[in-house]
Amino acid sequence: MNESMLFLIAFILYILSAFFYFIFLFSKKGSFAKKGYWTIIIALISHTVAMVLRIFESGHAPFTNMYESLSFLSWSAAFAYLFIERKFKIRKAGPYFMVIVIGLMALASSPLMPKEATPLVPALQSYWLWLHVSVTLFGEAFFAIAFVTSIMYLAEKYKEKKGKISPSGLTAEKLDSISYRSVGIGLPIFTLGGLVFGMVWAYKAWGSYWSWDPKEVWSLITWFVFAIYLHTRLVMGWRGKKSAIIAIIGFLAALFTYFGVNYLLSGLHSYT
């Protein structure tokens, strides 16, 4: 059993769990949702072992190239889903959310992503690499949940407009509230990992806590979008559709910070 083998097993199990969840969605049989849930747990174990093996092989944190960080983001997303599912019972969101996990895993395993572990350049040799990257990605995983529940909210509202009322317990109102709660979990984690730990590390490594590097600016932009989300929601009382749209924009900004900046803009964060 080596790392890529375990990664592949995790990938297949994620697909299997999505499959179970989709069966649940169409057959309405709760036993399939349970199967999906447990399949994610087994997939996560395999995925975790794969990452631990990679850490031992490379001798450094598993977030130094796109393959590694995408793999960790999928791991965080699956973990975040289990957490939210346990807490808020949103198994109807399972199939859609697993599609995101599978998409990230597929991207990680695509031949475009170099997989070999390369030795760390001097700037990355720091325990802040662990803290900064893992905490940020973990926060972004919760934005992904808010993204999925917001889209489901919009779909649910659209159905209601057409006169169809969803028979299951996951009403539009509940989706709206779960989306908000996910932002409530994700935003503090993202702020701590992305902005605070990022500033501390930048100060230690580059001698300046803020350099207006594109990645820094984009994480600030993501933060601003969620600030708009919170203020319109809590002070101005925006709920539902408008809130959902802002949460969707927030996740897309986070995604661009993570992904787009590396490929489209260059700066201090270009390591690979």
């Binding site: 600016v217 600030l220 932009i221 600030a227 203020h231 803009l265």
Partner: peptide, 24 residues
């Protein structure tokens, strides 16, 4: 006004995006 805060946030966000598109 909180509305001013929202407007300012939107303007600052847009300006920040512009700054990442034009090399500085």
């Amino acid at each position: 006004s909180v509305k001013l805060a929202i407007v300012l946030l939107i303007i600052i966000t847009s300006a920040s995006i512009l700054g990442t598109l034009v090399p500085q």
